[in-house]
């Protein structure tokens, strides 16, 4: 196998002008537009209340947008034709506590007739030394997550939506679970969208990024390309404001500590002046954007929506 798992021309998710308003007023998501190509493992990152869970629930078809639209695997989110191809693991891991592990997997088989992979589901359960006869209610948080992931994997989804999948796992189980997730992605070219707070859990695992904060998309695209579009610039600077030679570039964030200036910029051409210039780490890139809510959004070309907003679903069909 030497072909990359991602299929740049196929779209897993595409949002155009997507918005969700809370019942009490205020927006959970507003004017979100982005595209996630098929076969990517995408990190969904942002502070608490940024709209990550709302976006996942929309993609799973559990929630309807107030405005705009979200297309999933070429159809509308929640369509009967789309739903069997999508698996969603919510933050609260909804499982029946009185069922045994075996009964839970049987439920998965019965609810997904024709496309249930018992072997894939059991592999994940056995990997955790879980007894098939244990009641779900008696399991630890990490073991319950494993059973919930087994249900998701058994469905053999084309799109796997995970809300904080690793938050209650110990380091060993986290490693094993991530490895199992990556092996599934490698074998089936599954598109994975996973929300997480733990940056260490995303580095080296995800190749695509969606950063949301305050209900808006801030960054979207290949992690490599997003990182190489930015530079961390450091040096001595004692004047007020930002250096004049930065005017040609987009400044995401600039901070001064004593005589030292540290700035994250999106360079447009060479950076002039005596500065120490480095490529930011993923963590530095994310933190700078979270500290600077006013910085303009950046979408790489593959993350730009391809269908215009005004194309109605009927006209497109």
């Amino acid at each position: 196998m030497t072909d990359l798992t991602f299929l740049p021309d196929r779209t897993a998710l595409e949002a155009a002008g997507l918005g969700v308003r809370y019942r009490r007023g205020g927006w959970a998501l507003r004017a979100c537009s982005f595209r996630l190509p098929a076969g990517r493992v995408c990190a969904l990152v942002g502070p608490n209340g940024a709209g990550k869970s709302t976006l996942l629930a929309l993609a799973a078809g559990l929630l309807r947008p107030t405005e705009g639209r979200l297309r999933v695997l070429g159809g509308e989110a929640g369509d009967p034709g789309v739903r069997p191809r999508v698996a969603y693991l919510g933050q609260d891991r909804p499982l029946y506590p009185d069922f045994t592990v075996a009964e839970t997997l049987r439920l998965g088989r019965e609810l997904n007739p024709g496309h249930w992979d018992q072997a894939a589901a059991e592999r994940l359960v056995h990997g955790g030394n879980l007894s098939l006869h244990a009641r779900v209610g008696s399991l630890s948080g990490g073991q319950r997550t494993r059973v919930a992931l087994a249900l998701a994997f058994g469905k053999r989804p084309e799109l796997l939506l995970l809300d904080e999948p690793m938050s209650d796992l110990d380091p060993l189980v986290r490693h094993e679970t991530t490895a199992a997730l990556m092996a599934e992605a490698a074998e089936n070219a599954t598109t994975v969208l996973m929300a997480s707070h733990v940056l260490a859990e995303l580095d080296a695992v995800c190749d695509y990024l969606l950063l949301v904060s305050d209900g808006r998309v801030r960054l979207a695209g290949e992690i490599e390309d997003l990182i190489s579009a930015h530079r961390l610039v450091m040096g001595r600077y004692e004047d007020a404001g930002t250096p004049r030679e930065f005017a040609a570039h987009t400044i995401v964030e600039a901070r001064t500590t004593g005589r030292q200036l540290t700035a994250l910029i999106r360079p447009d051409g060479p950076v002039r002046g005596h500065w120490e210039i480095a490529e930011p780490s993923l963590e530095e890139l994310l933190l700078a954007h979270l500290r600077a809510p006013g910085a303009p959004a950046l979408l790489t070309p593959s993350a730009e929506p391809r269908t215009p907003l005004d194309a109605s679903p009927k006209a497109a069909a």
Partner: peptide
């Protein structure tokens, strides 16, 4: 990836 838990595209 089953041993290292990294993204398969990285290996490829």
């Amino acid at each position: 990836v089953a041993a290292t838990a990294i993204n398969p595209n990285t290996v490829l």
